[in-house]
């Protein structure tokens, strides 16, 4: 029923009921850990990293893999382990190069000063939205991030038809939009 996602879950764990997508993802990630993490750990170990480094890098790689191949539209590679190892190698090299750059503390401080305010307001908004109605956010996430079809969303969220799910998706988007607009104006008042 869940197409590409289900195929990967079946490959890595076992078939589960369509209602349990969170558990399915958990099973998928544990399956990929068992299958692909040892090779990554070996690579990081040989290049002077620690087990914690390997765990951090692998978690980032899993997120990238998920967004590109499971939630995304691309066809997953046949050999997931080799592909994940490739992502980890790139991430490790990037981290190593960033580490060299971070020796320049002044530059790092400038970067932080530029990024911090924007990120804080977005995180605060996200928390507010979650408190205002996480079901709407979850529904929107299912469509825009996890790449679910309206038929799948209708089944998981209990709508009578894909059409009802689509109507609710638009209402949720409108609700989020109005909340963000209102809260952004309030923040501007506070900042002024």
């Amino acid at each position: 029923m869940f197409g590409r996602f289900q195929e990967l879950v079946d490959r890595n764990t076992h078939r589960m009921d369509a209602q349990h997508t969170d558990q399915q993802r958990a099973g998928l990630f544990v399956g990929l850990y068992k299958k692909a993490f040892p090779a990554t750990a070996r690579y990081i170990s040989r290049h002077g990293g620690s087990l914690d480094d390997a765990r951090d890098i692998f978690q980032d790689a899993l997120l990238l893999y998920y967004e590109k191949y499971i939630a995304g539209t691309k066809t997953p590679p046949e050999d997931e382990s080799a592909y994940l190892l490739g992502i980890c190698r790139n991430l490790w090299l990037k981290r190593f190069q960033a580490g060299l750059r971070l020796n320049n503390l002044e530059a790092a401080a400038d970067d932080l000063a530029e990024e911090q305010p924007e990120r804080t307001s977005e995180v605060r908004l996200r928390n507010l939205l979650r408190r205002a109605g996480s079901k709407c956010l979850d529904l929107l996430s299912a469509f825009y991030y996890h790449g679910r079809t309206m038929t799948e969303i209708a089944a998981v969220f209990g709508f009578s038809s894909p059409h009802s799910a689509a109507a609710q998706k638009h209402k949720c988007l409108e609700k989020v939009k109005q909340t963000v607009k209102q809260k952004s104006l309030q923040y501007e008042d506070i900042l002024e």
Binding site: R55, F58, Q59, L62, L137, Y144, H146
Partner: peptide, 26 residues
């Protein structure tokens, strides 16, 4: 901006799920 917020919300959830898988393995 709303699409970005939705993406960040979902991404944070997936990150938490991956961290939970890591905890499970360890």
């Amino acid at each position: 901006r709303c699409y970005r917020l939705v993406r960040d919300h979902a991404r944070a959830q997936v990150r938490a799920e991956i961290a939970a898988a890591d905890q499970q393995v360890f």
